[in-house]
Design a protein around this nucleic acid. Structure first.
Lengths: 245, 245
DNA sequence: CGTACCGTTGAGGTGAGTCAAAGTAAGTGG
DNA sequence: CCACTTACTTTGACTCACCTCAACGGTACG
């Protein structure tokens, strides 16, 4: 799992992208193989800015202004419903985009994008997206793919399913995160850094912090996963998978 | 709420579409204002078939073959997860399309489309969709809008939210259905025909049939809604809305 | 008039929510 | 460096919404 420079391949592939040194967004799904015209638009249009933890990239009910592309850091998408319950439905990792649903749906943002770790974000304004879509018809096809594959709704079926026990939902979340948090294996055990707090876990799987805490303890008692603060250690990935079934 | 022919405008607009007599699919969002070339493709490509209740239009894990467009009838989209729990996440009413998520996402169907009422369905094969997208770039923009506005994921936030009480989720479902089931008002009261069984309600809001039954009774005790078999009577829509908040 | 499916009702057990309080880590200022 | 504040996490006690199992009433259909 190491490349020729000794770097973690997984990390490089999943989170930083090999071409990011040239253009941070060029290696992402939506922007690969753009023709020259739309590539020029992209390069001149994109505005890079940094956000501190706790700040918000866009707010629920705001009008969509463009597409946001996360270069590094971590962002959580959360929705506040009429009951005042905060529902987090998506974590945004480097190399992923957000803001397109309300843009293409032509309605206000239905979620807020809250920054969890200091983040660098590329913003591509609405007008330039429009122009790029005109210059390069294949771009819309790639956006279609992105939206169709949106992990938010897909994961919700198992992460936020009332009849499923909290234990099942939590296990599933840990499994999903293990694939996105550049986990590395230490003599058989899978180990990764949990990028979020307990309250975010609770919000993602639709439960309370207290129950998250208790369920974690329960999983430790059964030797399924071990938590050390924000370190997650999985002795056997197969055992974790069996939990889900 | 009556148009010049005395017909129910709501019914006409929401469910049957004025142009359906000419071409059943031409008035739908995705197919409006197609240019001549792609319109020709559509007219020659679409295959109309009828389905009986209990039959399945496509199965989970099938490869996507094209887009399905419901002319009349009723279809439910349900997903079977690894735990064997059937999760219904979407009702398909006449004038709505399905099958595009897996098609554009380039992965197998993640749900089955089960026919609840005898249905007439137009099928447009993948190849023809491709050709239409090439002939008319604006079509992809309309599909982007459709996917971005997919009510399935949008409704899930409130219909399938573990911390929300069953009562709240059920109320919300009744509210959503009242807008889609051509409800008519009889001297102040809102009344409509519930197109689904108790087990489908249970599946849509993630609970058991028994609890659905009990919660319905509870709502009747509080005079929020009244059920007579599959007739739903809402004395006050405002009272129902207050329930949700 | 039976069979099958759908819907309702009852009883009992429990997972998980709420409230409250203590423990732990992290950051701040003197 | 140490008190101090603040935010995060854990633990305990209690309550209840909802699930499960089981039986029963209704309705449709042959």
């Amino acid at each position: 799992m190491k490349d020729y420079k000794g770097q973690d391949v997984h990390k490089l592939g999943k989170c930083l992208h090999s071409k990011c040194s040239l253009c941070p967004v060029s290696a992402l799904t939506e922007w690969t193989n753009l023709n020259d015209a739309s590539n020029n638009i992209l390069q001149s249009a994109r505005q890079t800015s940094t956000y501190q933890p706790g700040s918000t990239i866009f707010h629920q009910n705001d009008a969509p202004l463009g597409v946001y592309c996360l270069m590094n850091g971590l962002v959580i998408l959360k929705q506040m419903d009429v009951h005042g319950i905060e529902t987090a439905f998506r974590l945004l990792f480097p190399g992923q985009t957000c803001g397109w649903r309300s843009l293409f749906g032509e309605h206000p943002h239905q979620a807020s994008a809250l920054v969890l770790e200091a983040s660098t974000v590329c913003f591509i304004p609405l007008n330039d997206i429009e122009n790029m879509l005109l210059e390069d018809p294949s771009l819309s096809r790639r956006f279609l793919k992105t939206i169709a594959r949106d992990p938010g709704p897909a994961n919700a079926v198992v992460l936020r399913n009332p009849p499923l026990a909290v234990r099942t939902r939590l296990t599933h979340l840990l499994l999903i995160l293990s694939e996105q948090c550049m986990s590395k294996s230490i003599d058989g055990d899978l180990c990764y850094h949990l990028p979020i707090q307990r309250k975010h876990i609770a919000s993602l799987i639709g439960t309370s912090v207290e129950t998250v805490s208790r369920t974690i303890k329960e999983l430790e008692d059964d030797s399924v996963v071990f938590f050390d603060r924000k370190k997650v250690l999985i002795p056997s990935i197969e055992k974790l998978r069996r939990e889900v079934e």
